[in-house]
Design a protein around this nucleic acid. Sequence first.
DNA 1: CAGGATCCATATTGATACTG
DNA 2: CAGTATCAATATGGATCCTG
Lengths: 119, 119
Amino acid sequence: MKKNAVLYKIGEKVFECPVGLATNVINGKWKLQILNLLSQGACMRYGDLKRGIEDVSEKMLIQHLRELEGDGLIMRRAYGEVPPKVEYSLTEIGKGIIPVIDELRKWGLGFKVTREAML
Amino acid sequence: MKKNAVLYKIGEKVFECPVGLATNVINGKWKLQILNLLSQGACMRYGDLKRGIEDVSEKMLIQHLRELEGDGLIMRRAYGEVPPKVEYSLTEIGKGIIPVIDELRKWGLGFKVTREAML
DNA sequence: CAGGATCCATATTGATACTG
DNA sequence: CAGTATCAATATGGATCCTG
């Protein structure tokens, strides 16, 4: 590491580049999709997230949720009820990611195809 | 897949959500960093990319470059010279990713720390 | 210089079954 | 409902040697 480098730190992780930090915390196959769903409303339950993200396994979903929580992007709130009820929502830091997702969506919309074109 | 769903297609990969498509093509530990470097100028040589991304192995670098090329985000131009010279650059599609990186950088800048705070 | 090929190790992801 | 536990598969990483 260079002597007078400016640094970027989240939790215990340190980076020399802001893009490096950002790519690290959103790195994970489903993280942006989780953040995308959470950005669409106030909060979502675990089961809603599971159903909202096709093909994600429970293991990876919970693992990514834990990591996002550890990095301070999302919040977990458990209600002491039976049956259990757990809600996830974006923190203020996490809300800062929304413009990133908006740009991703804009870019992705450019690849729209009609169903007929698929046949 | 739902009957009348709108679809998003890149190459042979089909998605139901534009964010899903976008996250898929930038998924890969070093891809955003590659795109970030390429967004800073006209083009870069293989060796420049290798030096510009700390800790990436040649194997993963070339693998990610191939995938980005396959998805149409970057272009590879080889000059028939000895010693070899290969330049990578963003395609028009790839340039659409720049706003995403800009937002990532803005967000990452919020985590700046002084060197003294690290001691 | 810009890779390709191979081997080996570790990390990440996935599928299934099970629990409070 | 919201997870855990376990095992299996895939992705990624590193080292070494090789080529046009």
